[in-house]
Design a protein around this nucleic acid. Structure first.
Lengths: 207, 207, 207, 207
DNA sequence: TATGAATGAGACTTCATTCAT
DNA sequence: CATGAATGAAGTCTCATTCAT
């Protein structure tokens, strides 16, 4: 699909609105108004609202692809460092694409759009494999404890990160209420990273 | 609000559909058809689609209230047992009300319905306080490590549980693909519980 | 039709609402709520909204009937006195039944309800005949000028009275704006009466 | 607001129906059918039924504005001629816009549509001022009797004209019944004009 | 290529009325 | 005799999309 300025503008506006109001809750009129284009143009460019939705994923899709796979065979760094690096990278990526992830969560299980469903599942699977492979390699090399629930270990990363990010407002409000302290977004990320790294250490470390 | 069979039927059907297709993605006609009632009846009973949405929360609301607060001062069980009990309870509750939680996640940040937003925030806050109080008590009594990030500790429970539950299908598919093994729903819950309990132990245990 | 307290309450409430919001603009629900009765009761008592409308006219109908006809043959008072009396009576009656008249004006030309249309036309016709007969009698007795447009003479009474009464608010506002003076309802009626009596005198007096 | 053929057609049809059945008594479907357009088009053009109502007033509004104000300072004609001219003009204007005036009477006191309410009140006020200024000028110049109720004098014009026009059918029927004579619309207007002119003369002439 | 105009379908809601007790 | 429950019909409006240029 060729991209031009207007097309990109439309997708960015749509991404925002889909993230906030959901797919059904967003009208093409709204998108058109905010993107400062004709209503007809959206259909002209993207054929339908459904296809626009798809296009956003294809457009942002590259960001979902993690570039960490290559690290696995790098022998210049320790397995612990690799884990840390993966966690840092995951959280940063997630934070950068929070809007897309919000949409993902909202429209999770959208029956139509089989194309997107596969696309998403594959991204997830890649993530799963990456972290699993890291750990397996560490276990094979005798660095990591072998008695761990790999699936739960994986679950911990996206689970905690998503919850943290999507409840940042609530947590900020609560911390302020209880301790008079409001962490910044970066501080949240830092605590998230530190916590995950430490948890991995506690779980994987051999006694 | 008085309840009768039809009202409950409508709310249950609506809960299902809202969970699957979201609020905007669900039409009252659909609800009416599946609940086998007249379209007008939904408005007759609930006044509006918005109020129906609210009613579901009020109806299911009690389930959101955790009954664990009372355990805090129980001296017949250890602090570790209390933590374990909380985790078990949380996961069971969550699992029982997964539809409501799915709606919650979908409509997270719904600008209208201030009443519901407060309702939800308070439920979250109660949860936060419960777990925090548990841990603080344990720390005061010298059982728990004092150097922990309480906020992250709390985050871990809903974060992992939600992710696990809402991605059960993906995880089942993946485990089958990699290991030819498909856990049941109960097995997922068990692994979730065991993992969380163990993680809490690793984190809170004094070295 | 038998009348009981509730029936009368319903009609009175309906009269108010019909006068303010018109027939179509008033719902039976509204009437029921304000009359503090069940919605179904209105249909139970009056069969339909249309019939309720009719009933109001039948109920208030007697007030529309002027009791002045008898004066025509009274020889103890002058023809001028009779005119004055008629004007006073007309304006008082109109003022007392302003709600019904407002409905009448609103629903003027309502295609359905032929019964009511006839009813109203007859009331109007009676009025027309009364004033015409007065004048004719005066002319025959040599008191009144014979060169007058009888139709217009009649027209003057309801025309001016209706306009005055239904624009009381506007006139009050205007008088206040221009002269800092706000007449009461009774003062309006007085000016209306005085003006009409004087106009009749000027028109009917023989030069 | 830009106008095109269809928009005007819709407004004209709506004006007819609103005049006959009132605002609430008219459905957009009816309007659409008679105007031979899609139901959605009415909303497309006018946004809402309310706004369509408003648009009719704005469209017809210019006709409501009397162009007589300029006459006041014209010294080439007598004050009596000015009065006559005003009466002729008022009646002709009213007759030309009888549908709009019928709507006006029907929806008199419509709580919503504050914009229109102001619009109407101002038109009324302008009329009031015009006639009052005429008379004042005549009084200052010594032509008119100074002891008159100006408010009632004003009231007479719209009061009689409205009643006459809106009861033309009744009057025609009655005159036929009593005298076997059916005036045309123009004859009604003539009698209306003559009567008012004569009445003004009788009232304002110095004895 | 781009867009103002137009539209069928369907959204939510309210209506007057009737049913069952 | 009275009414809570229920409903078909119709209300206004918004939707995504297509047409004609």
């Amino acid at each position: 699909m060729e991209l031009n300025e207007k097309k990109i503008k439309i997708m960015e506006v749509a991404e925002d609105l889909f993230a906030i109001n959901g797919f059904s809750g967003t009208s093409v009129r709204e998108i058109a108004k905010l993107a400062d284009v004709n209503v007809a143009m959206i259909n002209y460019y993207f054929e339908s609202k459904d296809k626009l939705f798809e296009s956003i994923f294809r457009y942002r899709g590259d960001y979902l692809r993690t570039r960490i796979e290559t690290l696995i065979n790098d022998t210049s760094i320790t397995n612990w460092q690799k884990i840390d690096f993966f966690i840092d990278e995951y959280i940063e990526r997630f934070s950068d694409n929070h809007k897309l992830h919000r949409i993902l969560i909202r429209e999770h299980g959208l029956t139509n759009n089989e194309g997107i469903r596969n696309f998403i599942n594959e991204a997830k699977y890649r993530n799963y494999q990456t972290i699993t492979n890291f750990v397996k390699r560490g276990q094979e090399q005798g660095d990591f404890n072998t008695e761990v629930d790999m699936m739960m270990l994986y679950t911990m990363i996206p689970g905690i990160t998503k919850f943290m990010l999507f409840n940042e407002d609530f947590l900020r409000f609560t911390l302020n209420r209880d301790h008079g302290y409001e962490p910044t977004h970066d501080e949240f990320k830092k605590r998230n990273k530190d916590f995950l790294k430490n948890a991995f250490r506690l779980i994987l470390e051999k006694k």
